Computed example of a mutant assay.
Amino acid sequence: MATAGLHGAAQVVAIDLDENRLELARQVGATAAVNSGHEGWADRVRDLTDGHGVDVAVEAVGIPVTFGMCTAMVRPGGSVANVGVHGAPVQLDLQDLWIQNISISMGLVNTTSLGMLLKLVAAGRLPAEAFVTHRFALDDIGSAYETFGDAARTHAVKVLLSR
């Protein structure tokens, strides 16, 4: 959400089940937020894109249903970027995606853009601090893991440990 506008996206749509994460997405760059737990969420995305679908869909959760959502909402000629870590097989409806000329990219997180991202944070162009929802002393790492592990209840996005 925070970097999409820097790459030229005129509209950035956040989709999530959690209202707290949707609010954070709005704060860091989303121009619209859609709760996928509400009926009609896909229609809302279509309305936001004048019925065409999104240019790029980023799957960042790592579960089959969100990958399917991405392939369903991307416009013909669009791209799906899979950055979520999947622990279960995902169905790929190649016969449908091929005819729509959909590109799919995926891979492990790398550090090739780290230097640029750190410069953007230092220049105040990326709101990195907004993602830190909980702070713990390093000695309290157990509580930090519990908090992050129960993010639905604690509303944890990123947990910061410090000495």
Rank of each mutant, 00 (worst) to 15 (best):
D139A: 14
V13T: 09
P89D: 15
L22W: 10
V109A: 15
A144G: 14
D93W: 03
G77L: 04
S79I: 00
L118P: 00
A81C: 13
V157Y: 12
G84K: 11
L22P: 03
G78Y: 09
V61P: 09
D139F: 11
D55R: 02
A81N: 12
V159D: 07
L120D: 06
A32I: 00
T31A: 00
V132F: 12
A122M: 13
I15F: 00
L6G: 15
A2P: 03
A72S: 15
G37N: 07
G124S: 04
A14K: 01
V157T: 13
E19H: 10
R46F: 13
A2F: 02
V109Y: 11
F136C: 02
G107Y: 09
W41E: 04
G115L: 12
V90D: 01
D55M: 00
H38D: 12
T111L: 12
A60G: 15
A33V: 13
D47V: 04
G29I: 05
L6I: 10
I15W: 03
I141T: 14
E146K: 08
E129V: 14
A4I: 09
G40W: 10
D18A: 15
S113F: 03
G124D: 04
D140A: 12
A2H: 09
E19L: 05
F136A: 03
I15E: 06
A137H: 13
W98H: 05
A60H: 11
A130Y: 08
P76L: 01
V12M: 08
A123L: 08
G53Y: 04
N110E: 04
V61G: 05
R26F: 02
V121Q: 05
A130M: 06
S103E: 13
E129L: 12
S113E: 10
N101P: 00
A57K: 08
P127V: 01
H7Q: 14
S103C: 12
H86L: 09
V109M: 15
T66C: 01
S105K: 05
G124F: 07
S105G: 11
A81T: 10
L161V: 03
